[in-house]
């Protein structure tokens, strides 16, 4: 499998602040990678560097095997979009579609117009008159219609309501099957996205915490619930991510692969075993322990 994106020891500083610190990741061809991370973790910085919009402080970033900045052969096969791309505000949507058609070789104008119709957007509307949700839809469908070999969407569903989001995911997945390409989607709503992802890239404070296939991520941890003593006994020799004790429920998240044996040994201790959704795993892996602070609020 080709590596569409590869970074080695990538660092980016803004003044004193490290937005990205020593990040080494790979993203393979024809995958749909979810770029997950909290606000300020460096998602947008990473995407901008990969799109050739931002300079690097140290390390390397390669897209299609080359450095992306000012590299027209890379940039012609790449589209980076977000929920509020700035265009000439007074332009009508149809004209913006024409601009896309002009600038991107593989742009499918007919497809874009059908999507506009599907999402009930009128080509005669001016961009500035769009609400946030409509702008997100518009930018999403433009990026999708580019059929660019690398399509990077930065929080594309911001402002979209639930029904529209579901349609967007379905359309994305469907178009991916018709025209395979590499997607990187940065989002907060991992649970909604989970089905269509093939890989996860979790970053926190500018560093890559996870860079794996989603199935591996699903298998990499499990949760046990039960009495405190049982949990304590069970976790004595295990690698745990987090443990919580309260009146109603005690649980621990074990950072080891789930196997049949696990169920047996857990059940022996009276513990119940359950799945950890990737979204929850990401939260556990990156949360800072603010629970005491939370309690102090009241």
């Amino acid at each position: 499998m080709n590596e569409v994106i590869k970074t080695t020891n990538l660092s980016k500083q803004f003044g004193k602040k490290h937005a990205l610190a020593d990040m080494s990741i790979t993203i393979s061809e024809n995958s749909i990678t979810g770029l997950i991370g909290r606000n300020g973790s460096g998602k947008t910085t990473l995407l901008k560097i990969l799109a050739g919009n931002l300079d690097i402080t140290s390390g390397d970033a390669f897209v299609f095997g080359e450095k992306p900045m000012d590299n027209i052969s890379v940039l012609n096969n790449l589209v980076y979009t977000y929920h509020n791309v700035p265009y000439e505000q007074n332009m009508r949507l149809q004209t913006i579609l024409s601009s896309y058609n002009l600038m991107f070789n593989n742009f499918d104008l007919e497809f874009a117009e059908k999507l506009m119709h599907y999402f009930e957007l009128d080509g005669k509307m001016k961009y500035k008159s769009l609400s946030q949700g409509m702008a997100s839809i518009f930018n999403f469908l433009c990026a999708l219609s580019c059929r660019a070999k690398l399509t990077m969407l930065d929080e594309p569903v911001l402002g979209m309501d639930v029904t529209v989001r579901k349609s967007a995911y379905e359309i994305l997945l469907r178009d991916f099957t018709e025209h395979p390409r590499t997607f990187v989607i940065s989002s907060h709503l991992l649970s909604e996205l989970e089905g269509l992802l093939s890989d996860i890239l979790l970053i926190e404070q500018g560093q890559a915490v996870l860079n794996e296939h989603i199935d591996d991520v699903r298998q990499s941890a499990y949760r046990i619930d039960g009495t405190k003593s049982a949990i304590d006994e069970y976790i004595s020799d295990k690698n745990i991510i987090t443990q919580k004790t309260s009146e109603l429920n005690c649980f621990a998240v074990i950072y080891e692969p789930y196997t049949r044996e696990v169920t047996l040994s857990a059940q022996n201790l009276g513990l119940t075993v359950s799945q950890v959704r990737p979204e929850d795993l990401c939260v556990f892996l990156t949360q800072q322990n603010k629970e005491d602070e939370l309690e102090c609020l009241w």
């Binding site: 000012d70 027209i72 940039l75 700035p86 601009s99 600038m103």
Partner: peptide, 9 residues
């Protein structure tokens, strides 16, 4: 910025 989304050097 109005044209930033398109490929350019």
């Amino acid at each position: 910025n109005k044209f930033a989304v398109y490929p350019q050097t």
